[in-house]
Design a protein around this nucleic acid. Structure first.
Length: 586
RNA sequence: GCCAACGUAGCUCAGACGGUAGAGCAACGCACUCGUAAUGCGUAGGUCGGCGGUUCGAUUCCGCCCGUUGGCUCCA
């Protein structure tokens, strides 16, 4: 909502513009579909939507009809009138017109009066502000329609939502459309196929990822980077199995609180659950012997592959899958170490995201409806998270009820090409699982105490992170991440002789991912193929280079070339291929 | 899971009132031996997502299922 809303019922900022456009859309829908009940029509980050209950489902061709009707309403140039009605008046009006949703909203509003806007025959309950006339809306476009639920309740009435966008200038609308098209080209699902990084196979089932060799190469680079960074920061690497007896999940509370997201199987009359999280395993490692306060904090790290049942409709490329690998760690510490540990994790998260150049937003998820443990412990855990964020001066929102069932969390959201947010890094404070598992350490006075646990992931899931990474770089990965770092192309087999193979072997000996394209195709065609594969460095070798033991280096997207001696070239590439983890300070 | 749309060759897409399907790119083969984003010619490749139903006959019509896409709900 704009800041001007409180002072004037009319304004002209972007938000107001969208808001009036959505009213025009609702008016058009009401004209075309008699007895439409309109629900809510807010503005969003980019554009607006309105939810309707209409006799029949919208069809794709309805979109154009609604746009046509909207154009008429704009041409009719209705004055937008602002009124203040008593709740009684408003209720009577909307009930008389069969607008049950509006009546329900009015009943739930505080105060005795409600704000009403009217344009022509269309009257809506609305806080405003609005444009003064419908004629001020010029360039708009309806984007998509989709199902929605009244008041986000999936058991409640199903509504139909139409999304749209509008601008004062046609230029801006065209720019918006162009940006969306650009974003589609960066879509990781599209690039995943084009660059042969990964695949999903219908035969395997939805939400299960197959990494092809090139995607695997990237993943290994990231895994190696993570392992090194964690070692540097005092984490110990561990491994745990993919499933465990249901008893483990009963102790951890997953059986009670997370069962609907888990896969179970029966073996020799014993029930087993495939792991949706790694924490109970790490806890069992902690429990393997008695701990002293001197040992704490203990930090266990694992690239743990977990499986969670996700409803079929929510799966989305790599960004939402059913099997994924977390860069997961659990820190066991004394309560007084908690804030310091959280701050350390925050530093870790920030340095990694900065390394990749991601922008992100931070939220704190508080106690959900389905939770376990003592609310007082929840408050202490939440306070610890917030004070660490404050100490680091990290701006954050509160996401009420978004915590895990065992504790509150800091969630860091990354954005995909279309601006949608995806949760990546997460830091969760947990007083509950240590209690449930009876974890202890011997404190300096000899007494037994319960440690506190931090669950945390730096990237979140490798699948999701790689998906975001593909979109972030639009497939133009820096040399250190590129699946193929150097492609060697002989101008012709005879002219170059054995030298291209020597160059490739030299690079491979230095751990550079290099290959050679010695197909009997034109040079132009092979250069083009390398460009389409988004290979960052192409080394062309003809007889000039072969004789001088040099390479002609062409960089991705650049036409001009550079001739380097083989040794200089290898040194240069090795420098660029180094994983830039210097940023991770111990 | 819900609402809607979609599923034709590895990829991008044509196509037919219901009579078992094509194009470009990729792949493969032959010729060309080539200096920085597509050399030419040729070959092969499809249970038209799966299963049922209607029909003399279904890839086309109907139903169910699977998968995908955009949202909703839910979440890394």
């Amino acid at each position: 909502m704009s800041a001007g809303a409180a002072t004037s019922p009319f304004a002209e900022d972007q938000d107001t513009f969208w808001h009036t456009t959505t009213h025009i859309m609702a008016q058009a829908v009401c004209r075309l579909f008699p007895n439409t009940r309109y629900a809510i029509g807010p503005t969003i980050d980019e554009g607006f939507y309105y939810d309707f209950d209409v006799v029949r489902n919208f069809l794709p061709e309805d979109m154009a009809k609604i746009e046509e009707e909207m154009k008429k309403i704009v041409e009719e140039n209705h004055t937008v009138e602002h009124m203040s009605w008593t709740k009684g008046e408003a209720l009577e009006f909307f009930e008389k017109h069969g607008q049950a949703f509006k009546a329900e909203l009015i009943r739930d509003l505080p105060g005795s009066e409600v704000s009403i806007y009217r344009q022509g025959e269309f009257t809506d309950l609305c806080r405003g502000p609005h444009l003064k006339r419908t004629g001020l809306v010029r360039h708009f476009k309806l984007l998509t329609f989709a199902g929605a639920y009244w008041r986000a309740n999936e058991k409640g009435p199903r509504l139909q939502r139409i999304y749209g966008i509008s601008y004062q200038d046609k230029k801006n609308l065209l720019e918006f459309v162009r940006r969306r098209e650009e974003a589609e080209k960066r879509d990781h699902r599209r690039l995943g196929v084009e660059l042969d990084l990964f695949g999903m196979d219908e035969t395997l089932g939805g939400g299960l990822v197959l990494y092809h060799p090139k995607g695997s190469a990237m993943r290994m680079v990231i895994e190696d980077f993570l392992k090194r960074a964690h070692r540097k920061l005092g984490y110990q690497y561990i491994f745990s199995p993919h499933m465990a007896n249901a008893n483990l999940w009963k102790i951890s509370g997953h059986y009670e609180n997370y069962k609907e997201n888990m896969y179970f199987t029966q073996i020799e009359e014993q029930e087993f659950g495939i792991k949706p999280m790694n924490c109970p395993f790490h806890i069992q490692v902690y429990r393997s012997h008695l701990r002293s306060y001197r040992e704490l904090p203990i930090r266990y790290f694992e690239l743990g592959t977990v499986y969670r049942f996700e409803r079929s409709g929510v799966l989305h490329g790599l960004l939402r899958v059913r099997g994924f690998t977390q860069d997961d760690a659990h820190i066991f510490c004394r309560e007084e170490q908690l804030t310091g540990e959280i701050e350390g994790v925050l530093d870790f998260v920030q340095s990694v995201l900065n390394l990749f150049g991601f922008s992100y937003t931070v939220g704190v998820g508080t106690r959900p409806e389905k939770f376990m443990g003592d609310p007082e412990l929840w408050d202490r855990a939440t306070a610890a998270l917030r004070s660490a964020l404050d100490a680091k001066k990290i701006q954050h929102e509160i996401h009420a009820g978004d915590g895990a069932f065992y504790g509150p969390k800091i969630d860091v959201a990354l954005k995909d090409a279309l601006g949608r947010s995806w949760q990546g890094p997460t830091i969760q404070v947990d007083f509950n699982l240590p209690q449930r598992f009876g974890l202890e350490y011997v404190s300096d006075d000899g007494s037994r105490k319960t440690p506190v646990m931090i669950h945390r992931a730096i990237l979140g899931s490798l699948e999701r992170f790689i998906g975001c990474l593909i979109e972030h770089y639009a497939g133009d990965f820096p040399v250190w991440l590129s699946p193929i770092q150097v492609r060697v192309i002989p101008v012709s087999a005879e002219a170059a002789g054995a030298f291209p193979a020597e160059v490739m072997d030299g690079l491979r000996a230095r751990d550079i991912r290099a290959d050679v394209d010695e197909r009997e195709e034109s040079l132009g065609k092979r250069i083009r193929a390398a460009e389409l594969e988004k290979i960052p460095v192409v080394a062309v070798i003809g007889n000039r280079e072969a004789q001088a033991r040099s390479v002609n280096v062409r960089r991705r997207g650049k036409k001009d070339q550079e001739v380097l001696s083989l040794t200089d070239f290898v040194e240069q590439i090795c420098r660029e291929a180094m994983v830039p983890d210097g940023a991770i300070n111990p």
